[in-house]
Design a binder for these strands. Structure first.
Ligand SMILES: [Mn+2]
Ligand SMILES: [Mn+2]
Ligand SMILES: [Zn+2]
Ligand SMILES: [Zn+2]
Lengths: 145, 145
DNA sequence: TTTAAATTGAAATCCGTTTTCAAACGGATG
DNA sequence: CATCCGTTTGAAAACGGATTTCAATTTAAA
């Protein structure tokens, strides 16, 4: 999603919820969109500190949760015990390939798998709300090493 | 897997590792196999306490990790922040459907999905070591309520 | 037995997450 | 502007599950 679009969506969200637009929230969103994906609260906090030492971890944490609530970010868990966030691609969905050696994360989307998930769920009387699919293995670089 | 088979596999594991067979480990394995699947350390600990108040949480925790190391149990994470364990079905693999309302967990296995996972990974140069597929939604009971 | 090593369990510690609370800020109002 | 009130901030504390510590106990080999 375009940065400008994302920013205005967040502004609108704040308005609707009776929340305030603050210097910190703008800084955090700016840096979140600038930085690469799948970063932890700590990651983002450290990046922000470099430019603005007056920002608190708690604020970064709370703001990332606001992003998720607003729909401009998604929280992920890749099994290393810490939450990670990535910017939402509007209605786009994707799953992840994770290299267990170097930590590299590759995103993919496979409509066939998505479809089969729905079918399997239906066979068991379930309707799916969301899912999580993560493939852990070795990326090409790490496999030949 | 048969209980007897599982128990001897664990005994053998202990021997190979130079570990000792203790009263606690036998009690814990016994109760683990008796209880239903997908239970947390706390769950198992509480069940054990009823019959034997002299057992410690730390021991249950350590023993479950031993089970996993030995291959007779598998650790799972369903996103509620606590680890769960289930007995291994030898080489059998399965994934999970989880009802977000009542917590019901249904196991399934779909070779078509498994196959597509391998293909998708290969397309990105990955070889898969393991994966995690969880479908969250509403079971038939909870949907009509 | 005796002995050395492994195990136990209560309590302490770890570590990411979340909350608390007093001070600072945002923005609506006149 | 100046005032006011609800919101936000950030340091520190609390939280919660996982893990470790360590002195006492148990295991099993000698
Ligand atoms: Mn992603
Ligand atoms: Mn299962
Ligand atoms: Zn790699
Ligand atoms: Zn249900």
């Amino acid at each position: 999603m375009l940065k400008t679009r994302t920013k205005s969506k967040f502004k609108e969200f704040l308005l609707n919820q009776g929340l305030k637009s603050t210097q910190q929230r703008e800084l955090i969103l700016e840096e979140f969109l600038r930085a690469g994906s799948h970063l932890s609260t700590e990651d983002l906090y450290l990046r922000l500190r470099k430019k603005n030492p007056r920002i608190g971890y708690a604020t970064v944490h709370r703001t990332l949760k606001l992003f998720a609530e607003c729909g401009i970010a998604e929280q992920r868990h890749f099994g290393d015990g810490q939450a990670r966030y990535e910017a939402s691609d509007q209605d786009e969905h994707h799953d992840h390939l994770i290299c267990v050696t170097c930590g590299r994360i590759v995103e993919f989307e496979d409509p066939r798998i998505e479809q089969l998930q729905v079918e399997v769920a239906a066979e068991h009387g379930f309707s799916i709300e969301r899912h999580r699919l993560e493939l852990y293995g070795f990326c090409s670089d790490c496999r030949q090493a």
